[in-house]
């Protein structure tokens, strides 16, 4: 064997731990966040190694990309605010912990217990692999992960879209502070403009492809939606006035649409069946409709979440209630 996979895995594992330490202990928080994003990409590689390409895509797009963008948006907002007011040092590497020794002890004991629990319970059960794979042809799709997400355990996924919608609502509820300031638009650069012009349609196309291919290969609504969300973030950063304010009815429809379509699809089949029990013949198409609607909503919600963290939500015209 030319290439030893086991040493690759060990090296990757060490790299993951090293990056985690580096990110958590970074003096500069900005650096920490960038290392976190890099860490996410390596996690994605690890997941390819354990045969989870769907998740590798999701982790790279959401876990690393979108989450990192949220952090950077929030950090730049705070830095800007701080420059405008009194300069206060926030740099605070691990120091300042109150009862350090106890925390160290507690975490070590806990981690060891968890590792023991995993080692002792490893390999007893096959889980539901056989069950899921043997009934996959009843689900209307070929990719087992899509089958679980949109058919076997579709109810979880429905509620999960509800959680995302709640996050967007929450960002609206929290967003409006007393000091309202819009992002100072950076002057538009030619390169960025061309980039955005080319990139946006490509991202939309790729997202559409990911949804379509998700029924048999890695992909699906969440990965595609994350791509759209990424496009939204890039557009916002390039200074585009994307409609993200809840005051606009169109925005609200796009945000809530995916959840509503999912709910209504589940209800529509309910005449003489259970909730979300699709008829065998049309399962594939129902799943596709749900995925398309959710992709758009997920993309929009992720964009709104970024706008909320980067303080791009408030317009001075929006009214204040009691």
């Amino acid at each position: 064997m030319l290439f030893d996979w086991l040493s690759f895995d060990l090296l990757l594992a060490i790299a993951l731990i090293a990056l985690a330490v580096a990110a958590l202990r970074a003096r500069d928080l900005f650096k920490g966040i960038v290392i976190f994003m890099l860490f996410g990409l390596l996690v994605a590689i690890a997941w390819v190694r354990v045969h989870a390409p769907d998740l590798a895509l999701a982790e790279a797009a959401i876990g690393s990309g979108i989450t990192g963008a949220l952090f950077l948006g929030a950090l730049s907002r705070i830095e800007r605010k701080k420059k405008s007011t009194a300069p206060a040092r926030l740099e605070n590497p691990v120091g300042g912990s109150t009862s350090g020794a106890w925390t160290v002890l507690l975490t070590i004991v806990l981690t060891v217990q968890l590792a023991l629990a995993v080692l002792r319970g490893w390999g007893y059960s096959d889980g539901l692999a056989d069950e899921a794979l043997s009934r996959i042809d009843e689900s209307g799709v070929i990719n087992p992960v899509t089958a679980v997400i949109l058919n076997f355990r579709a109810y979880d996924t429905l509620l999960e879209i509800g959680v995302l919608l709640l996050a967007a609502l929450g960002v609206y509820a929290i967003g409006e502070g007393p000091t309202v300031r819009n992002l100072q638009r950076t002057s538009r650069s030619e390169v960025l403009e061309t980039f955005v012009h080319l990139l946006t349609p490509m991202i939309v196309l790729t997202a559409g492809y990911l949804v379509w291919v998700g029924y048999k290969e890695p992909g699906g609504a969440f990965q595609a939606g994350a791509l759209l969300g990424g496009a939204g973030v890039v557009l916002l950063l390039s200074g585009r006035e994307l409609p993200v304010h809840a005051a606009r009815p169109g925005v609200r429809i796009v945000l809530g649409g995916g959840f509503l379509v999912f709910l209504l699809a589940g209800l529509a089949v309910m005449q003489d069946r259970a909730f979300l029990e699709y008829p065998r013949a049309s399962a594939k198409y129902i799943i596709l409709i749900i995925e398309l609607a959710c992709t758009v909503s997920i993309g929009a919600i992720l964009t709104v979440l970024f706008a909320g963290c980067a303080n791009l939500l408030t317009t001075p015209s929006e009214e204040e209630g009691t």
Partner: peptide, 18 residues
């Protein structure tokens, strides 16, 4: 490969970002 944990983690990632 058991697809169920994969689905759980996808849900978990979305909850985490929210």
């Amino acid at each position: 490969i058991d697809p169920v944990p994969h689905a759980l983690v996808l849900t978990g990632i979305v909850v985490a970002v929210s």
